[in-house]
């Protein structure tokens, strides 16, 4: 039953992303709160519903954004896959894994966005995109990563209390 917390949390994350986070720019880059949140959620050992969260968040972001819903859904699933792989290999240093996922996830999001936009007939200069959008976005996501990780860890302990006792 506590898994239903995903609904308000995802709505809140997308709402904050659109209303606040998107307006805080570094060059032309912005942070991606749902992406960082999903990465932090998938990093928690107890969590089994990360895939569902990724699809729900991707569809919701796709609904709000002018970009095709394919981009956020694919990007967020990619982030979850990365988190699942890295969590097992770098389990002793969760923050290091978190930073790695944020870094690679942001690059993945940019890559998917560029590909889909190119198929839509919008050809963006890759060098400009990397320097002015992707790199600043990575930095902003990294800044968010630690605090979001702490919040999601507390949330995971609340959602899965029995496993924590064990």
């Amino acid at each position: 039953m506590r898994n239903l917390i995903a609904v308000p949390v995802i709505f809140l994350a997308v709402l904050l992303q659109s209303a606040i986070v998107s307006r805080i720019t570094l060059l032309s880059g912005i942070a991606d709160l749902p992406l960082v949140m999903l990465a932090a959620w998938a990093m928690q050992e107890e969590v089994e519903t990360a895939w569902h969260w990724a699809i729900a968040a991707g569809v919701l972001v796709g609904f709000v954004s002018g970009l095709s819903w394919v981009v956020p859904v694919l990007s967020y699933l990619f982030v979850i896959a990365l988190a699942q792989v890295l969590q097992r290999r770098v389990w002793q240093a969760p923050l290091l894994a978190m930073f790695s996922i944020t870094f690679l996830g942001t690059i993945g999001l940019s890559f998917f966005s560029l590909v889909v936009l190119r198929f839509s007939g919008i050809d963006l200069p890759i060098v400009d995109v990397f320097g002015l959008v992707t790199l600043p976005g990575i930095l902003l996501n990294m800044l968010l990563a630690v605090s979001v990780f702490a919040v999601m860890r507390d949330l995971a302990r609340w959602v899965y209390p029995a496993l924590e006792v064990e």
């Binding site: 998107s22 912005i30 954004s65 970009l67």
Partner: peptide, 9 residues
């Protein structure tokens, strides 16, 4: 009341 979540648009 908001902006696009994607930095590309």
């Amino acid at each position: 009341i908001g902006e696009d979540p994607s930095p590309f648009l």
